[in-house]
Nucleic acid binder design. Sequence first.
DNA 1: CAGAATATCGAGCAAAAACTCACATTTTTC
DNA 2: GAAAAATGTGAGTTTTTGCTCGATATTCTG
Lengths: 222, 222
Amino acid sequence: MATNRRVTPRKRPSQGRSRATVEAIVQATARVLLKDGYEACTTNRVAEAAGVSIGSVYQYFPNKESLVVAVMERHLGQMQEALVRRLGEMADADLPTVVRGMVGGMLEMHRIQPKLHRVLLEQVPRIGAMKRLHELNDQYEPMVAAWLEAHQGELDLPSPSVAAYVMIAAVEGVVSRVMVEKPSWVELGLLEQQLTRLLLGYLAPHLAPPLKQAPTPARAAP
Amino acid sequence: MATNRRVTPRKRPSQGRSRATVEAIVQATARVLLKDGYEACTTNRVAEAAGVSIGSVYQYFPNKESLVVAVMERHLGQMQEALVRRLGEMADADLPTVVRGMVGGMLEMHRIQPKLHRVLLEQVPRIGAMKRLHELNDQYEPMVAAWLEAHQGELDLPSPSVAAYVMIAAVEGVVSRVMVEKPSWVELGLLEQQLTRLLLGYLAPHLAPPLKQAPTPARAAP
DNA sequence: CAGAATATCGAGCAAAAACTCACATTTTTC
DNA sequence: GAAAAATGTGAGTTTTTGCTCGATATTCTG
């Protein structure tokens, strides 16, 4: 039985020296996670990578899981900040702009350590550590839903929350794979274009730009 | 360094009795994986769950990883069969039908043990076991790309392979989340409808059906 | 039905990994 | 500048877990 272990820090560092130690430990955890994956991320290895003794690790972190939680906390915090800032900026623009902004924001936040994100997302056991991840989703999904709801008239949606869910899951699904498998697509702007088109086509087909040009101008001729 | 260990079965069961043992072991692995996650899926626990001694497990499987590979092999085989059958059936239908069929096929294949799928996908270390998963993707992505290429005239795509990638990643992203988080959406047909709309809107906005009815029939009036 | 082949069992070994603790070192306090 | 508090150390303990092996049981074969 997996008893609920604490995952919060054991002791707060008060001197500058110990704050640096904690910092080194968290960074080393991320580095090991990135390089060797979750399975190989042992406490001893983290200590070594941080240039610190195991004793020091356990001075501040009660167990292995709490190390990963610390990394996750930091990483998701950065991502969230990037996205929420972007979403807030365009509260009252028109649909294409908002969609482009949303896609751009999600791309931007996924530029932050995409490989670490993948390890965190895919290899970390679905336990305490995962709570933070859902908190992130649960924060911006309502933001999108709210915007959709406010513009329901021009959009014709069955349900803003369903639409927000579909949009976010779809974009997340594409972005998180592309970031690792086809990073060049991001640099070329190809992905932003494709995803904008995907969402606009979903929300308002008549506003979606053609993929290259308009090839078959015949529209209503069955 | 993770030396490449063999993950293929150690010995083929020849008597009926031993075939039942192997079957019990594979099923027990899936059950433990499902109930307790990858981390807690120890060989001893699997043996216990299978009602078999550890010795018997190691008679047929060289190591722990091979147990998971066996489960994955079986699961992905089932999924692949479901999808490929469906895709083949509609080689020469029109666009909306094909898209609906593709979405339906992906939904259908994800109905097979969605939670097991998630564990396999997310928690299994990205090693030998993962090869099989990519083989699955690499099999039907070209099928979709080929179809798109054949209909490039009516579709206006920048690149069939990019479009296939985006479509599959998007649908996969939505479906694999919904299956676990919002299973009722699938039963209600809501998801099939939304995803069809998403893909049609992407490929051919002028063919996409409205989300509920047509609310703003004004189409070309800026 | 005897002996060979196949299969099962489970105590226990060895390696690996999580974690502790008694002591050394540095910084702060007064 | 001495006592106290905070921090750092790493050898060593404990726990976990993958896996072996000799003994035992079942099934097949001629």
